[in-house]
Write a protein that binds this DNA or RNA. Structure first.
Lengths: 188, 188, 188, 188
DNA sequence: GATGAATGAGTGTTCATTCAT
DNA sequence: TATGAATGAACACTCATTCAT
């Protein structure tokens, strides 16, 4: 596999376990069975690794949302699809949900170069969809900026909670509960 | 003020700004205008300071929930009251909402000595209330363990989001939106 | 002794032996019988230690030259006195002559904060004295900027050469030879 | 050009700018537009590059001195000729004068394999010439070992000083001043 | 010979923690 | 209690060197 991806996967595993700050670059390298120095060929520094983890996930979602935009789907449905996709990703990679939940609000992330259209950009995508939804009367009059973010972070959080509550197997049904919760919570 | 409280407040301020791991004990001491050594009279170590921040907030909520238990209030109403109280606390101390949101899921917290009946204990309180609520048919048949945690963390998250979105002044109305969102989301 | 001086002396010893770049901060700390961390209480970084060594020597010479300025001494005599003083310093501390000779022309030194009136400032002091000397016809028409520097660096170099040629004991007579060499070299 | 020479020239440029210790082999390779690995085909290690720079210059001077030996020239004249040749070399390659002045007294150089008859050998050549000169009464009774070295290093130093004082164009006249300085300094 | 990705020992620097005052 | 200088283990990052291609 491409070395950079190898490092991303090992880093996700270790950071999920130890937390970003307590994670040693050496541990990541050990897990990836490469030398420390190699990490620094692909990443400027330790922060860069975390950035890349977020960036990768961010890109996937943005790509999906762009694809959905070109389709004629009701906005709430689009939100559901993105949530489902993201949820499925996190189910397949539980460590990722830990990292996103644990490190997703760290100041370090907000100082990242990709922040301009970064992870925080996804709440904005949700906001736009909620705006559309509001216009056609699907949902009631909520603060879409706030709820865009709430919905996004609640999604990550729920995936994380399922994991620490040992309910990985119920992912599918619990996800439906979550969607029902959200939709009922905002619909007119 | 009692030195220990002084340290807690300074620590909350600094940790909110820099994140726990990047925070230096020296910075906290500087902010509190005391010597580093003094911190170690009141706290076993750096982790102990974060513990104490969570513990303090936890105790307040447990105290309130115990008081509510002795009263004859519908369970959903109890949840609302606790959320409102917590929200009000976070509004008065925005740094606290940053700390709770940023560090509340860190492994470090889960390794803390007070964890047994700790911060994570609050979701359990919510769970019990949701169970009661479910029994009397106020809400539909949800996974109360999961939703106890979702509701609790969403509360903290929302307070944090209001702050970074610069909506401190709309705290009250946004809180009502959040409560409506949650109640609508779970009611039968 | 003051810790900072202790570090300066140990650093001079170790740098003379290993060269600045190959010198480990740990070695300096070991020699000074203190912890590495202590070095960083007194110095911003490793470069700062070298700066301080130069700065200290520079200040001594500037002080002497200021004292001489206030006296009614022929300029060539002033140069002799400064050279003699510096030479005597280097004889008492052979390691210092190694450091000044070896590191005195490194780019690192030229990037130092004290460079404005720094070590390179001493050649300028010599230049002024040569200018005076030229005016009164003591010496011939030389490029005083160039020879100010040549005389200064030759002084350091000679002290260094005496050391590596194992002639520390002949310091006094060799110094007189050097002075004669310089004076004969520039006089009218 | 032969790769080894290419590397020597690039190394001289980079070392003059950054100092030997701070110079990365990668930088030299970049400047020479070759791969790092290639450097290690022509040189055993990084020190070897510096050795070669000195060795090259040393060989030229030894060659010249051997040629001069076979001619019937007064010893002082020989010294002048060598100095002039060396000076001219340094004028054509200012980076070289920086390297020789900056690194010529480093312990690293004294640990080099070619040191036995190495760069430090040139002072010895000068010493022999001064001995001859002293015998025929051209110069006064000086410590020829010391002055052989002083004269040699002063030559390098002066070339270096001319460069940092921005007097490259005056090289010729300044050189004559230097020679006059030295000859007057040592003659009977 | 030439390459440059990979290596990993080595080092500057930080910072939680201690303890003599 | 309070102090803050001193400690030294720990860690991010570098870079000379190697070797499979």
């Amino acid at each position: 596999m491409r070395k950079k991806e190898l490092i991303r996967l090992s880093a996700t595993k270790i950071i999920a376990r130890d937390g970003f700050c307590k994670t040693k670059v050496q541990s990541i390298a050990d897990d990836a069975k490469i030398a420390v120095g190699t990490v620094y060929i692909y990443f400027k520094n330790k922060d860069g690794i975390l950035d890349y983890i977020f960036e990768t996930q961010h890109k996937k979602i943005v790509k999906l949302s762009e694809k959905l935009e070109s389709q004629n789907i009701p906005p709430l449905e689009k939100i559901k699809k993105i949530l489902r996709y993201h949820f499925e990703e996190l189910r397949k990679n539980p460590d990722l949900s830990s990292v996103l939940a644990q490190e997703g609000k760290m100041p370090v992330v907000y100082g990242s170069p990709w922040i301009k259209d970064g992870f925080v950009g996804i709440p904005y995508i949700f906001q736009k969809m909620l705006d559309e939804s509001k216009e056609i009367g699907e949902i009631r009059d909520i603060d879409t900026e706030l709820f865009g973010a709430i919905i996004f972070f609640t999604g990550i959080e729920t995936a994380y909670l399922l994991q620490i509550q040992g309910k990985q197997d119920k992912h599918y049904s619990e996800f439906n509960e979550l969607v029902t919760f959200i939709i009922n919570g905002i619909k007119s």
